[in-house]
Design a protein around this nucleic acid. Structure first.
Length: 258
DNA sequence: ATGGCCCGTAGAACGGGA
């Protein structure tokens, strides 16, 4: 089973790239963030025609998440839950569902803007509530996979310039402590289960020729239930879509399990 | 030295992203 996550920064703009990517990479599950579409405008017909079911939760302008599941292998998502029952929130950042025996949690963590902003405090509260919600079921059945745009670079190795980013939003100690709490709760960073190329990132700023300079951060993650870790065969970041014309600023991350 | 883009909503700039 192959699962993937991709912050597309507007599914309206990126739909052709998403369909092309799925054609070349027919993953069983694709978690999308920043769809930026109200539900009435979600491209259900195009995605169905490409062989995928879709569960989605959107709003105008901002945020928006979706779980695509491949018809011929895993079928439609079941027991879909939008949001976190412990954290009522108008921002559409979470959608979870059971797909082929996995509890897939697609998450778009708040950005936080800067460590002295109200948005940063919201980010920390949002993550705390996510941990509180997930902790009791991690380790049980169905096995949990938490994947998405975490807006956290967990370690210095995940940052192109750790000195410049030290203490900044996405890299602050409070955020990294929460990432470690997810690990302590029983999840594993699928990417770090394997030896990886140095300077591996999943996001590059549109400005400053970030991608050409590989000035990036690894902030998109696939965390798997520790019970699944021995079954994870591979995990990688696919930089190819970032090279296209009019790309998302994020690259897809995928993992193969079992 | 500074800030440099992209997207959506607008219907000009601005908020937000990271």
């Amino acid at each position: 089973m192959k699962i993937a996550t991709w912050n597309v920064n507007s599914l309206k703009i990126r739909l052709p790239q998403v369909l092309d990517w799925l054609s070349a990479n027919p993953v069983d599950v694709l978690a999308l963030q920043e769809t930026k579409l109200v539900d009435a405008r979600f491209p259900v017909a195009e995605i169905e025609a490409a062989g995928y079911h879709a569960a989605f939760a959107g709003q105008p302008t901002y945020n928006g998440v979706a779980l695509l599941s491949r018809k011929e292998t895993v079928g439609a998502a079941r027991s879909v839950v939008v949001g976190n029952p412990l954290f009522p929130d108008e921002q559409q950042r979470l959608i979870s569902a059971e797909i082929d025996g996995l509890r897939c949690v697609c998450a778009y963590f708040p950005n936080g803007q800067s460590v002295d902003s109200d948005k940063y405090q919201y980010k920390l509260r949002w993550i705390d509530a996510l941990i509180d919600w997930l902790r009791p079921t991690i380790g049980g059945q169905p096995a949990t996979v938490l994947l998405g745009d975490f807006n956290i670079a967990p370690e210095a190795a995940d940052v192109h310039d750790p000195v410049a980013w030290e203490g900044q939003v996405l890299c602050s100690e409070a955020e990294r402590t929460r990432f470690r709490s997810l690990i302590e709760a029983g999840l594993r960073d699928a990417y770090r289960l394997f030896e990886q190329p140095p300077k591996s990132y999943s996001w590059w700023d549109y400005r400053q020729l970030g991608f050409r300079r590989n000035a990036g951060l690894r902030i998109d993650h696939i965390l798997v239930d520790a019970q699944l870790a021995p079954k994870v065969r591979a995990c990688a970041i696919d930089r190819a879509p970032r090279k296209l014309t009019q790309p998302s600023d994020h690259a897809p991350v995928w993992a193969e399990i079992g």
